[in-house]
Amino acid sequence: MEYLGIEPKKARIGVFDFTCCEGCELQLANKEDSLVDFLALVEVVNFREVSSDRGQDYDIALIEGSISREDEVERLKQIREKAKILVTLGTCACFGGVNSIKNRFDIDDVVSEVYGKNKVETLPVRKVSDIVKVDLAIPGCPVSKSEVERIVVNLVTGAAVNLPKYPVCVECKQKGNTCVVDLGEICLGPVTRAGCDAACPTGKTGCLGCRGAAEDANFDSLREILREKGHSDEAIDERLRFYNAFSEELKNEG
C-alpha cells in the first residue's frame, strides 16, 4: 500500500490444470464486475483458459485438479520448483475430489470400463499435497471467486490470509434457510469449513463437504444425530467419501 510506503507488487501468476473439470479456472474468469480490477492486480504469465502466453516466470502457481498420471507428477514437481507460492485451487487439488472415487475400484476394471480396449496409463488419484509442499489451499467445488479475490488481494498487499475456521451452519443460518437435516437430508454443513455462503443447503441440497473439515469439527456428534434421524452408517460414510475431503476423519474412526 502506497500510504504505508509499501508498493503493492503485481503478482505474476500461472494457472495449471491437472485431473479436473477446469471449473475452478473458469471461476477465475467469472464475476465481470470486478474482473478488470482482478486482472490489474495480477500479471497472468501462464493461464491456458484466458491467454496464449506460456511464461515460466511466475511467483504464484495456482494448481487445479488432482494428480492421476506419472507425467502429472513430473509436471507438478517442475512447477513447484519455479513457484514461490504454490496454491491448490479447488477441492480436487486440495483433497482429491470426486476423481478419488476411482481409488475404490480395481484400476484395470476402471480403465476398461471407461476406455474399453484402449490402454491408458493411470495411477490412483492423489491430492497435490501428497506430492509437493502446498503453501496455501483454497478449497471448494468450485472455488468461490470472491474468496480467491480476497486471498489474492491479501497475498499482493501482505495482509493476513485466512479461511473461516467455523462450519457452514453459520452462513446457512444467516441465509435464513430451513435446516435440511431437519427436512430429512444428510448434510455435512455442521462439520464442513464455511466460506461457500451455504450454496447447497440454500438450494435445499445437503452439504457434500467440498471445503473439507471445519476446525475441531464434531464428527462423532453429527454421526449420532444422523443415525437418530434414521440414516445408515453406510449412507453417512458415502457422503463423507464423496469428495475425499474427510479421509483423515474416516481413517481415525477406523
Binding site: 510506503g5 509499501i6 501482505g158 495482509a159 493476513a160
Partner: peptide, 12 residues
C-alpha cells in the same frame, strides 16, 4: 505477532 503488526513493522 500477526500480519497487521508485520505490516506495521514495514511502515516508515
Amino acid at each position: 505477532a500477526g500480519r497487521t503488526t508485520e505490516v506495521l513493522h514495514q511502515a516508515r
